[in-house]
Amino acid sequence: MSATVEHADSSAGFLAHHFDDRAQQRQAAVIGMWAFLATEVLFFGGLFAGYSVYRFLYPEAWVEGSKHLDHVLGTINTAVLLTSSFTVVLAVRAVKRGEKDHLVRYLLTTIALASLFVVVKTYEYWVKFSHGTVPGAGFELHDLYDPSVSLNQVELFYGFYFVMTGLHAFHMVVGIVIFAVYTRLAQLGRYDENYHTPIEMIGLYWHLVDLIWVFLFPLLYLIDR
């Protein structure tokens, strides 16, 4: 995200024309990335605020909705995602040590784990769709744990579930695409111990995506369990 013209001297690493040196270039990327992460937090923050308001208003419906989610799959996905954050850290470590092969391997592992997460999530969505547990006309929910609960309110819960996890999954897919591009560039030897800012930046992004899930998982899957 930081470059326009590459300097001829590739051994010094990548330096865009408008920066004085690589330290300045890296600093700008770090500040820019953290600012972007702040916008992401507030983006999801609007959803978390809405979630909190309705959970406070309709606690029974939230419990009911949560019990119909597959907490086993949710737990597996949490583990998968946390592991992928770990492999990203290993990738950053590898590139800082100039270990190109390790870098590529860890990036590929991250992509594999992230894809596994998306597959499991898709399966969960598919189950919900096949049972009609989707907001909109004809919302259905069978085998209620609490028969007195208002189905409309449970539908609201599923509105939040789909929007929040859907946006999160969208961020996962974007991350996977960027990882794929960076993996290719890493294979071509673009990153080394002198120039590794992009790997660090995608790492920051990935940790945030991970962190958002760490909040989503208990808020959606683990109510009253």
Binding site: F43, G46, G50, L57, Y58, P135, G136, L156, G159, V163
Partner: peptide, 29 residues
Amino acid sequence: TPVVSITVLLVAVERLFGVGIFDPTLGGD
């Protein structure tokens, strides 16, 4: 800005998919 983005997006998904987060008939506010 991100907050208004998500808010307008919620209106859009409400119109598109009927995810009625602001829909009073579901108990939305």
